[in-house]
Design a binder for these strands. Structure first.
Length: 282
DNA sequence: GCTGTTGTTCTCCG
DNA sequence: GCGGAGAACAACAG
């Protein structure tokens, strides 16, 4: 499921495949993928050129001519690939962008959770979920102090806070479990109760994990493939996600799996500390 | 046929 | 009004 490293990998692999190409025709086979009117969406896109592909959090932004931006979110299983426009339409293929050079970009999504929205460039913050996004890991804004302040005022569980894209954007269920294990913080810990030296560790681990996962082209757990059809490599580095019932690589205790706000959460009950009470700042 | 799976948005509750 | 928590969405594997 694409989190920030996966979306960034898609952006990088997609760019050389589509940048500079002009859209000839758009076909929408499943309307609900498109926010707003699907027919108008297809009509507006015809004749537009793709200038470049940007990313914000887990959103992809196709920058187009005539001041338009196509905002695309892959949600859980959205995928893009380049093929011949007349290629057989699969059950899970939902949108196709045929280009004037005889190639086509096709969007497929088993879950049909992904969304696309066409907006005027510059208005994407107001018109899409992008406006609600917080800071990105490894960005200048994502400082240790920022994370400290974000945690200090929240009574909610640390796992939920990390999944909240309005605080730090880009982390999903997999990397959440990984960074909490690395930082030896129990996922049910109250955010404001986590001591500052642990917040420092968490901050470092978020940055390092996202950077390494991006370098390894993301994590392929279920079906993630980039635009070149390649799988990621970070799944080999996962310490907890998908390893419930196996021994913790640090202490040997059997990893447990619980639900935190409806999300599967794997952790080590021995070496991940549960912080409950308000901890004194230093 | 029921359960588990997940990112975002929506809805409900205190 | 706000934070927090859970449901809804959707399809598939087991």
């Amino acid at each position: 499921m694409p989190e920030m490293p996966e979306v960034e990998t898609v952006r990088r692999t997609l760019t050389p495949l589509v940048a500079g190409k002009t859209i000839k025709k758009v076909e929408v086979w499943y309307d609900k993928i498109i926010a707003g009117d699907a027919r108008a969406f297809a009509q507006k896109l015809a004749g537009k050129q793709i200038l470049r592909v940007d990313r914000y959090g887990k959103f992809l932004l196709f920058r187009l001519s005539d001041n338009l931006t196509l905002v695309s979110h892959l949600r859980m299983e959205g995928k893009y690939r380049l093929l011949a426009p007349q290629a057989a339409v699969g059950k899970h293929d939902h949108v196709q962008f045929a280009f004037t050079d005889g190639t086509a970009l096709r969007y497929s999504d088993v879950r049909k959770f992904g969304r696309m929205q066409l907006v005027e460039t510059g208005t994407e913050r107001e018109q899409t979920g992008i406006g609600k996004l917080g800071v990105e890991p490894n960005s200048p804004e994502f400082t240790r102090d920022f994370l400290c302040r974000a945690l200090a005022k929240k009574s909610k569980k640390i796992k939920n806070l990390l999944l909240d894209q309005s605080v730090v954007c880009g982390l999903g269920n997999i990397y959440c479990d990984e960074v909490l294990w690395q930082s030896r913080i129990h996922p049910l810990s109250q955010a404001s109760a986590i001591p500052s030296e642990k917040v420092t560790a968490l901050h470092d681990n978020i940055n390092q994990t996202i950077a390494l996962a991006t370098k390894l082209r993301g994590t392929t757990v279920h079906t993630f493939l980039d635009a070149d059809g390649q799988s990621g490599q970070f799944q080999k580095k996962l310490q907890v996600y998908g390893h419930a019932g196996e021994p913790c690589q640090r202490c040997g205790t059997v990893l447990e799996k619980i639900k935190v706000s409806g999300r599967g959460t794997t952790f080590c009950p021995q070496c991940q500390v549960l912080y409950r009470e308000k901890h004194k700042q230093d």
